Amino acid sequence: MTSPPSSCPPNRPPGKNLEDLLLRKDIWRGYNQKTEPQAALSSGHEELDNVLIHGGWPEGCLIELCSENGLCSAEWQLLTPAITTLLAQENGYILLLNPPALPFANRLLQQGIDINRVLIVTPQNKQEFIFCFTELAATKDCQLLLSWAPKQSLSYSELRKCQLATARANQLFFLIRQRHTISQSSPASLRIKIQLLETQIQLNILKQKGQLRQKQTKIALPDYWHKYSAHNQFQSVDQSHSPFKNAIKTGIPTSNVFHFPLEPRQTHG
C-alpha cells in the first residue's frame, strides 16, 4: 500500500506552523503583557516616563498625540525636553511636517533650541504628506519628526505606510491628530490624548504596545504657562483702532503663529 502524495514539493523545506509565527518579536498578542525591550529616550517628565513601558518615548515607531483640534501648544511643552536632549547629543535636524502655524522663534531660542536645526516642510495635500513622511523617516539626519495630520482624513492603510516607514529607523516620530480620531483604529504603537488644563497637561495613554490597560498622568505647567486673559485693547472689535494695527498691516495673520508664553528673564542686580 502506497502513501498518498505530499502536497508539498519534495525539495521545499517544511513550513512553519502558526505557533512558530506567533513567537516572532514583531507580533504582539493582546492578552500577552510581555514586551521586548526597545530603545527609548526619556521624555524629560518623570510622571510620563513612569507610565511608559520603556521609560520614555519609544524609538522606531509611530507615536500619536491626539489633541482638541490638532493644534495645541501643549505638545511643545511636552516634547521640548526630548528635543533639547537630541540637539545636544548629535548633529541632525528637528523636522516639522505640515505644521498648522509657524513656531514662535523667540520661545524656541529661550528653550535652548537652535532654530537653524529646525526645518519646516509644507506638503500641499494628503498624498504629498504621506510621501514626505515616509521619505523624511528614512533620512538619517532626521532626529525627530513632528508631523500634523492633513485636513483630509488618513485611512488605516495610509497610517500603516507611515508606521512601516518609522520601523526602519531609530529616531522619534510623532503624529498629531484631532481628538475625534481617537475612536478610529490606528497602527501606532503609542497613542496619547492631550488635554491642556489651567495649570497642568493631562495625558491619557489610550494605546501602548505590550499593555492593555489605559493609564493617565498629569504634568505640571511652569508658572509662566498659566492662562492669562488677553489685554482688553487686543479684543477691540474695530481693528483699525487696534494698538496692533501696524502688525496687522504686515499681512501676517496672528492666527498662523504658535504663541508661547515667554519665560521671565532672570534679572541680575
Rank of each mutant, 00 (worst) to 15 (best):
L23V: 02
S3Q: 15
N69S: 01
G70D: 08
K218Y: 14
N69W: 04
T122Y: 08
Q184N: 07
C162W: 04
L97R: 13
H259M: 08
C61V: 15
A74T: 02
Q216G: 15
Q89E: 09
H54L: 10
K34V: 14
G210F: 10
T254Y: 13
Q143I: 00
Q33E: 09
L23A: 14
G112P: 14
E59K: 09
K140G: 01
S67Q: 04
E90M: 06
S189K: 15
N11R: 13
W225G: 06
L154M: 04
D20E: 01
Q239H: 04
T122D: 04
R265D: 04
S67Y: 04
V237A: 14
N32P: 05
P123M: 05
I252A: 06
D141M: 10
L146A: 09
K249G: 08
N106M: 12
Q127M: 05
N11S: 06
T250V: 03
V121D: 12
A188T: 06
H259N: 11
T254H: 09
H226A: 15
G30Y: 12
Q208K: 01
M1Y: 08
E47K: 08
A188I: 09
V257D: 02
P253N: 07
Q33W: 05
I252F: 06
W76F: 12
I83R: 07
H259R: 05
A74I: 02
I27W: 03
I115F: 08
E19L: 15
L164Y: 00
W76G: 02
K140F: 02
P103R: 09
W28G: 11
Y224Q: 15
P103N: 10
S42I: 06
A82I: 04
L62N: 08
E36F: 00
S242I: 10
Q152R: 07
L119M: 15
I113T: 01
L41N: 05
P100H: 08
H180M: 01
N50A: 14
I182S: 01
W148K: 00
Q127T: 09
F244P: 00
V237Y: 13
R213N: 10
G44D: 04
P4W: 02
K126L: 14
L86C: 10
L96Y: 05
L62F: 03
I130V: 15
P243S: 04
I248C: 01
T84Q: 06
S43I: 07
L95Q: 10
V257E: 08
I176D: 04
T122W: 06
F174N: 13
D20M: 00
I176C: 03
C66S: 10
G15M: 05
I63E: 01
G56T: 06
Q38E: 03
A137M: 07
A169N: 12
F260W: 15
K193T: 03
T139V: 06
K151C: 00
K215R: 02
E158M: 07
S155Q: 04
S186I: 03
K161Q: 15
N170W: 02
L109A: 14
P150A: 07
S185G: 11
I83Y: 12
R107C: 07
F104S: 00
M1L: 10
